[in-house]
């Protein structure tokens, strides 16, 4: 499954410019330290964090996309930094718990 499939099937908004890539597993956390300790390459990272720190953190662990939940407004500087690093920033109005149900429905497993 690719980021393109996930975006289309769930109806996510794309906030940054990026190349689609293969998705492997999901990691849900709002703690950057947890993401850096636990997320794996290719994971979708589900979070409500929007601060631009999420971009270097996502980059460090090579996640396939950041999905920002609960309709949080994402600052432009976060999107700018994501564009610069080819990091996919997606968003949804669903809260994390509900999005997890949909991702699970697509057959995605945990990290």
């Amino acid at each position: 499954m690719t980021t393109k499939d996930v975006i289309e099937k769930i109806g996510l908004r794309c906030l940054s410019n990026f190349e689609h890539r293969e998705v492997e597993g999901v990691f849900v956390s709002d703690m950057l330290s947890d993401v850096m300790a636990g997320a794996k390459s290719g994971n979708l990272w589900v979070t409500v964090q929007t601060h631009k720190s999420i971009v270097p953190a996502a980059n460090l662990v090579d996640v396939s996309a950041i999905i920002i939940t609960s309709g949080k407004k994402v600052p432009q500087e976060t999107i700018d930094l994501a564009n610069q690093h080819d990091i996919a920033v997606l968003s949804t109005d669903l809260p994390s718990f509900e999005l997890v149900g949909k991702l699970y429905g697509l057959g995605l497993v945990s990290s």
Binding site: D30, M31, L32, S33, M36, Q49, H51, K52, S53, P56, A57, L60
Partner: peptide, 9 residues
């Protein structure tokens, strides 16, 4: 430069 940190912690 910015430290990677847990916002809201």
């Amino acid at each position: 430069g910015e430290f990677i940190h847990d916002v809201g912690m």
